[in-house]
């Protein structure tokens, strides 16, 4: 009985990982897509974290949306899935650390996760807790994929002749 159940779980993993992989791809594509049309705004959002000088922040802010889209596309096609998931996880850890540091310093900003970010208008509330929680959720998706990188509909699978 138990062996049959564990066999069923084993068979389910590639599907669970596939859902996680596609979900994470969507997250990165949306996050990058929202920012890519306003690179100056993206730079200002990075600058709002006050972790680096403005000139560095605007370069990071300009590169970030393109890298996010690239990670999204890599995950979507499923190439070097484990490596892509590791990179996605590292990015999420950086974002979580950034939001936590802003929170700790008492700055009032919009995290810029799915927006251009920047300072909040007066009277608007910050939502660092839920922002972090959401990024932790994405980190969990990335972790599933990197622990069980075998997924359906992936370029990796096609190259290895799996079906």
């Amino acid at each position: 009985m138990e062996t049959r159940q564990s066999a069923r779980v084993t068979a389910a993993w590639p599907w669970i990982s596939t859902v996680a992989r596609i979900g994470l791809a969507a997250v990165f594509l949306v996050a990058g897509g929202l920012k890519v049309t306003d690179l100056a705004g993206s730079g200002r959002a990075v600058n709002a974290y006050r972790l680096m000088d403005f000139d560095t922040a605007r370069v990071i802010g300009a590169i970030q949306p393109f890298v996010e889209i690239a990670i999204g596309l890599l995950l979507l096609v499923g190439i070097a899935v484990r490596l892509s998931a590791i990179i996605g996880a590292i990015v999420m850890v950086i974002y979580i650390a950034g939001i936590a540091s802003v929170w700790a310093r008492g700055l009032q900003i919009d995290c810029g996760c799915f927006s251009k970010g920047g300072s909040l208008a007066a009277g608007q509330n910050t939502q660092y807790g839920s922002d972090i929680l959401r990024d932790v959720g994405f980190l969990v998706l990335a972790s599933i994929v990197l622990i069980k990188p075998r997924t359906r509909f992936s370029l990796d699978g096609a190259l290895l002749g799996e079906r």
């Binding site: 370069v59 300009a62 590169i63 393109f66 890298v67």
Partner: peptide, 10 residues
């Protein structure tokens, strides 16, 4: 390449 595209856009 993504990073370079971002840099050149900037």
């Amino acid at each position: 390449i993504a990073g370079l595209v971002g840099w050149s856009q900037f």
